[in-house]
């Protein structure tokens, strides 16, 4: 098992990092659209200040995931590539429109409103499509007969489980991003924007939780194998719930010395831990399958000597890049001069 398990863990790591960064990224784009006309609150400014420098870095992670799949599990790449041709292409189309118009909206002031709308709307559809990969991997939506692999799109889009995942993706995107932007606007001392985002996150948190329960509920009948294996980890799921509650309390309750309610930094951290624990449980229960029950990680795994080389490169590259990430973070997330710059 060894190497394949390390490899799938690396992949899981990339997926998790991308999931968190992308929800914040797409969500920020969406909020900057929603609050476009509310000049007073500066909520759009805050969203853009976060989004401008980060979207490129976030985008590299999706490329990193695809590369990790075919370099670590080339055997799976064949099936995944074939099955995901249509949904994958839809994601690519949306992603391209979204990124291009995001950049254009910063350049062409006169048309900013329209450009922001296009990128905001296409951005919120992307998580919904991306997450559809998960139900596909649970089995039942791929026809493996006569040597071909075909995605049964109609079956997929009539399954309640699929809609549970879509709802979860959209809610999470809005929830996580509003929480992060609340934290960001608090650091910027933009109190109006802070109030707006704090309220959004307080509304969206419980809804997101409901959608997560909805997933479990539909999973029970649609993918009992997965449901059962996830329930084996019930204690961890409860830990995850606990962190959600901690996050909720942190945003609802405490008052700081200025009398402003909420402690968003703690909430962001708690909720991120919550997602991490929950996706660990999900990922662990999913093993050893890529697509249940036909494709597992062992059969798709790469050549051992390739794995050694790639793994070495991961370590070296990470060591080299780490300072770059820290520097980036300190310039855009932690530098008061940037975060608090005067809104134009």
């Amino acid at each position: 098992m060894g190497s394949a398990l390390i490899a799938i863990t690396i992949l899981w790591g990339f997926v998790f990092i991308y999931a968190v960064m992308a929800t914040m990224d797409f969500g920020a784009g969406f909020w900057s659209m929603i609050y476009y006309n509310r000049d007073k609150t500066k909520a759009t400014n805050i969203a853009n200040r976060y989004l401008s420098p980060t979207w490129e870095v976030t985008n590299v992670f999706i490329v990193a995931i695809v590369v990790a799949i075919y370099s670590l599990f080339p055997g799976a790449a064949y099936t995944l590539g074939t099955v995901l041709l249509i949904p994958g292409s839809m994601i690519l189309l949306l992603l391209t429109i979204r990124s291009a118009f995001l950049v254009f909206s910063h350049v062409a002031d006169h048309y900013r409103k329209m450009l922001t709308y296009i990128s905001g709307i296409s951005g919120i559809l992307i998580p919904a499509l991306l997450i559809s990969v998960l139900p596909v991997s649970h089995g039942g939506f791929v026809d493996f007969s006569n040597g071909k692999h075909t995605l049964l799109i109609r079956d997929l889009f009539t399954s309640p489980n699929e809609y549970a995942f879509i709802a979860f993706a959209i809610c999470s995107t809005l929830f996580l991003s509003s929480l992060l932007l609340a934290d960001y606007s608090k650091a910027a001392k933009e109190w109006d924007a802070y109030k707006v985002y704090r309220k959004d996150s307080m509304i969206l948190g419980p809804i997101t939780l409901l959608s997560a329960f909805f997933i479990m509920w539909t999973l029970k009948s649609e993918a009992p194998w997965l449901y059962g294996k996830m329930m084996d980890h019930l204690p961890l799921l409860l830990v995850s719930l606990l962190f959600f509650i901690i996050g909720g309390l942190a945003i609802y309750l405490p008052k700081d010395k200025n009398g402003m309610r909420g402690y968003p930094r703690a909430a962001v951290i708690a909720v991120t831990i919550q997602y991490m624990v929950a996706s660990y449980v999900y990922g662990h229960a999913h093993l050893p399958y890529f697509i249940y029950p036909d494709l597992d990680i062992q059969s798709g795994f790469t050549d051992p000597s390739s794995f050694r080389a790639v793994f070495t490169i991961y370590i070296i590259g990470f060591l080299i890049l780490f300072p770059g990430f820290v520097y980036f973070w300190s310039l855009f997330m932690n530098d008061k001069r940037y975060v608090r710059q005067k809104s134009e």
Binding site: V66, Y70, S71, G81, D303, S306
Partner: peptide, 20 residues
Amino acid sequence: SLLWPGFMEVIGRVMALPFQ
């Protein structure tokens, strides 16, 4: 990988380094 899965299977086994 969507259009040339057969190609990427070989590339993944042998030539993953440059992508990485």
